[in-house]
C-alpha cells in the first residue's frame, strides 16, 4: 500500500530509516497542520496549540486555530499557522 511518508523517507540519504518514525508534521500552506505521532494535547487555545511528542513538545502558534480532527495519535489543525516550534 502506498505510504506518502515512507516514500519520502526512502529518498533521504545518510539517515537511518528507523530513526524517522517518531512523528510527522505537515504544514499545508500555513492553513492546515497535520500531525502524526502526538502523545497528547497539552494546551488548546484559539491562538496556540501544544502537544507532546516522543522526547519533546511541539507548540503551534497561529490565529483562529481549530481542531478539526483528533485521535489518540493524530490531529488536524486548521487556521492561520504562524509558527511551529519543537522543544
Amino acid at each position: 500500500m502506498f505510504n506518502f511518508f515512507n516514500e519520502i523517507k526512502n529518498k533521504a540519504s545518510g539517515i537511518d530509516y528507523n530513526l524517522l518514525n517518531e512523528y510527522n508534521i505537515i504544514n499545508l500552506s500555513g492553513k492546515l497542520l497535520y500531525v502524526e505521532g502526538h502523545q497528547g494535547v497539552t494546551i488548546i487555545n484559539s491562538d496556540m496549540v501544544a502537544f507532546k511528542i516522543k522526547k519533546g513538545r511541539v507548540v503551534v502558534e497561529g490565529k483562529e486555530l481549530v481542531l478539526s480532527e483528533l485521535t489518540s495519535n493524530t490531529l488536524l489543525l486548521q487556521g492561520v499557522i504562524i509558527k511551529v516550534e519543537i522543544f
Binding site: G40, V41, I43, I44, N45, L65, L67, L70, T71, S72
Partner: peptide, 15 residues
C-alpha cells in the same frame, strides 16, 4: 473543544 478554546485555555487534552 474548538468553541471552548476560543475563550478558555484547555490543558492536557486526551481522548
Amino acid at each position: 473543544i474548538n468553541n471552548l478554546s476560543k475563550t478558555i485555555r484547555i490543558y492536557n487534552f486526551s481522548r
